[in-house]
Design a protein around this nucleic acid. Sequence first.
DNA 1: CTTCGTTCCTGGAAGC
DNA 2: TGCTTCCAGGAACGAA
Length: 273
Amino acid sequence: MPELPEIEQVRKTLKPHIVNKMVKHVDIRLPRMIKHPAPENFADILVGQSVRELKRRGKYLIIEFNTNLRLVIHLRMTGALVAADSDAAEPPYAKVRFDLTGDKTLWFCDIRTFGTMHLIVNDDISLPGLEKLGPEPGSSEFSAEYLEKIVKNRTGAIKGVLLNQEAVAGLGNIYVDEALAQAGILPQKPARSLSRKELKELVASVNKVIRQGIKNRGTTFRNYVDGNGTQGTNQHHLLVYGRKGQPCKKCGRELIGTKVAGRGTTYCANCQR
DNA sequence: CTTCGTTCCTGGAAGC
DNA sequence: TGCTTCCAGGAACGAA
C-alpha cells in the first residue's frame, strides 16, 4: 500500500528516467484505469508531449508536461510506476505502457487495478481528492494547533482522522498505526478527547515515522517497489504494523490486533493509552 | 456537518 | 492435496 514515503521514493527514482523525455507511444491494456479523458483520446493528447517535472502531493504523483497538461496518478493499493529499457521484457500486471524517447519505457503495473490516471487538459476537470488534501506531514501548517481544530467535536477514533486525507495528506494504514504507537496513543481513542500535549506528541510522531519511511526508501510489506523496481527497507523498522501477536519492541507485551475505523489495526495495550 | 457501511479488485492465506 | 472462503485496504459514494 504505497503511502507518502513510498510515493516520494517513486518520485525521486522515476524523475531522472522521464524528465525531458517525449512520449512516443501509449498502449492501454486496461482502459478502466484511465478516468479522464476517454481512453481513446488519452494517447492522442500525450503523444509528442515532453515531461517537464514530476511532483508529489499527498499520495498523488503529478507528471507535468506543461502548465496546461498534467497527468495525475494515484497508485491506490498495488499500483506501481516502473521505468525500464524499451527492449526489456514486459513486467507482470502491466496495464499501461508509455514509450519515451531515449529508448525508455514507463510501465504502469497494478495487481488489483485500483490505480487511477487523470489527464487534466487546461484545468478541464477538478479533482476534489487532490484539491481538498490537508497539509503535508513535516510542513509548518501541520501543527498541534491545526490538529486541535480538526479533532474538535469529532467523536470518532483518532485513527480515522489520521486516515482522512483532508485532515492530513499522505498517511495510510501503515504509517497511522506507526505514528500512534510512536506517540503512545490508542488508535480507538475518541479524537476530541486528545489533550494538547497528546496532539503535540502525535504531530511529532507523524513527522518522525514519515521521515523515517522516506529515509528507508519506503515500506515493502507486499508489493511495493520504487521507480527502479527496488523494494524499500522500512518494513524492518516497524513498531506495530503487521506485528500482531508479536512482542512490543518497547515493553515486550503481546501486540493486539483489532479493527478501528474499518481498518486492520495493531497496537500495544500497555504502551498506548 | 459527521460517521459508518459498501463498493471496486486480485493474490495469498486460512479453513475444511 | 484441493477446493472454497476470507482478508488485505484507498477513496468515492450513499445513507443515516
